[in-house]
């Protein structure tokens, strides 16, 4: 306090002045937050440093070194065939990083976003699109994907909004490389993942192979919606995908 004589009245005046300032600031802050959270700007996925987003080929080699050795990965004929033993791959290839036994996920925790959501099962709909939770509070694990911690891409999806309210993955696009993701599992263990990339794609050009395709380690993909709201269909035009690798 200052030199002002401390009478009940002056104290009330000072307190009320403080209240004006504090409430005013809260109001401004909350308005700013609310404005920043309008549809179209639930945090969009910014290409994090180190090239992500719609990361194409031809960039720098992946820092995680997910393709090792002189590549025998898939593309037939990549190798000089018979008679080129000097070029032949002789490495014993095994999955990279830690792996956990199969166990269904029960809860997903995003410490940086303050998210802690129970997990339900999701399967394929008859039109072969993935089911989504029917509420804004649960996340879902795609049962045709590996369980979180097993080899391969485990898929967890949740709504960005539901019934006009922000839902579980409202701020997913704000996740950044290096953020942690924890998944609690039925066997009592917790799988901890580190975010490697955040991507945002038009639903019409969803990179299925990159999201669902083969990976040589235990991986996790968190999926939600983003981008502008399409007035015609009443849904978001983009998907946001958070890519992560098992750390422990």
């Amino acid at each position: 306090m200052s030199a002002v004589e401390s009478t009940p009245r002056s104290r009330r005046l000072t307190a009320s002045a403080a209240a004006v300032v504090v409430f005013g600031l809260i109001g401004i802050g909350a308005t700013g937050y609310a404005l920043s959270q309008q549809v179209g700007t639930p945090p969009n996925a910014m290409a994090p440093s180190g090239g992500a987003g719609h990361s194409g080929h031809g960039g720098a080699p992946s820092p995680t070194g997910s393709t090792t050795g002189p590549s025998s990965s898939g593309s037939p004929g990549a190798h000089a065939g018979h008679g080129g033993p000097a070029l032949a791959d002789t490495e014993y290839h095994t999955p990279k990083g830690p792996l956990l036994e199969r166990s269904r996920p029960t809860k997903v925790i995003l410490p940086t976003l303050g998210v802690n959501a129970p997990i339900i099962d999701l399967s394929l709909k008859p039109d072969r699109r993935m089911e989504v939770p029917d509420n804004g509070t649960e996340a879902g694990w795609f049962t045709s994907s590996p369980t979180p911690g097993e080899l391969g891409p485990s898929i967890i999806a949740a709504h960005v909004t539901h019934e006009s309210k922000p839902a579980v993955f409202f701020e997913l696009g704000g996740m950044r490389q290096g953020d942690r993701i924890e998944v609690e599992r039925e066997d009592g263990t917790t799988a901890t993942f580190g975010v490697t990339e955040v991507g945002q794609y038009p639903k019409a050009h969803f990179p299925s192979d990159k999201v669902y395709g083969s990976v040589d380690r235990a991986a996790l993909r968190l999926i939600t919606c983003g981008g502008v709201l399409d007035g015609e269909t009443g849904s978001h035009v983009d998907n946001i995908v958070v890519y992560a690798h098992l750390l422990s």
Binding site: T31, S144, A204, F206, N239
Partner: peptide, 29 residues
């Protein structure tokens, strides 16, 4: 050495519902 998703879903994922009139973060407002 690697694994992929067993059944690959078609297209993107419908994780935004169509009910919102455009105002998000109602609570914050």
């Amino acid at each position: 050495t690697g694994a992929s998703t067993g059944e690959m879903p078609q297209g993107g994922v419908d994780t935004g519902d169509g009910t919102t009139g455009g105002t998000e973060a109602v609570g914050a407002f």
